[in-house]
Design a protein around this nucleic acid. Structure first.
Lengths: 118, 118
DNA sequence: TTGGTATATGATCACATACTCATATACATG
DNA sequence: CATGTATATGAGTATGTGATCATATACCAA
């Protein structure tokens, strides 16, 4: 079969209908994905986790993660663009911090899911 | 400078030390990233969200997302490999469901973070 | 066994993304 | 203003990833 994009081959119409009406709004899907994606990369997760403990500058984060400052800077730009972190300048040093401290709870909650299953 | 992988250029040694001792274990970082990554893609997020409402088969999910059944199958394999979903066979039809229903709370909590910031 | 249906899987390709290097910028200090 | 420091940014590259197409598998029914 060339095109198996099924429109007619629905087995359980009621299930699909129910799922459709409970489905997330496309915009909400995008927002959620952006947020999860931010945490879905080891470097960014560690950066966010560190910043949720205390504000830090690029150089310190690079030392913590043992990667180049350029790499950290690029990741921070992403996080800034997503609206997850902001910075504060003090001379030539930029201190970064998360916009929303509740993000730490998202990490802890995810962590608790990893412990035991239901 | 050729190599800016800083080891000596640490500005705030105390901050780095504190961050190091509070840092997540590498294995935990990997687990968390896997989990977040699973939710960090529109297709998978919608699949998981749908399955958290009711068990569904590949064909129904394909209809819901309006993508090929092959694409859905590939995503489901990923989720299976990650241990996030399991299936139950009934004849030729495979019904998928999440291993842990608390995953819905992860989505809701993330959603609540999108509403207002602190 | 033969054919049909639902799904899985492998190869391939297009695109995203995370890093590196080189360079630019912003601020401080002389 | 010239220089140094901390960081930002752009281009290029290598790797990751999500889709497609073709094919394989598992089950069912005649």
């Amino acid at each position: 079969m060339q095109n198996d994009r099924c429109g007619s081959r629905i087995i359980h119409q009621e299930k699909v209908d129910l799922a459709r009406c409970r489905d997330l709004h496309p915009a909400r899907v995008e927002q959620l994905c952006q947020l999860f994606k931010a945490f879905g990369e080891p470097g960014r997760l560690r950066i966010l986790h560190a910043l949720l403990q205390q504000e830090m500058c690029v150089c310190d984060l690079a030392a913590l993660l043992d990667v180049s400052e350029s790499a950290v800077s690029h990741q921070l730009r992403l996080l800034r663009t997503m609206g997850l972190v902001v910075n504060r300048r003090e001379g030539t040093v930029l201190y970064y911090r998360p916009v929303d401290n509740r993000l730490i709870e998202l990490i802890s909650f995810a962590g608790s899911l990893l412990e035991g299953h239901r």
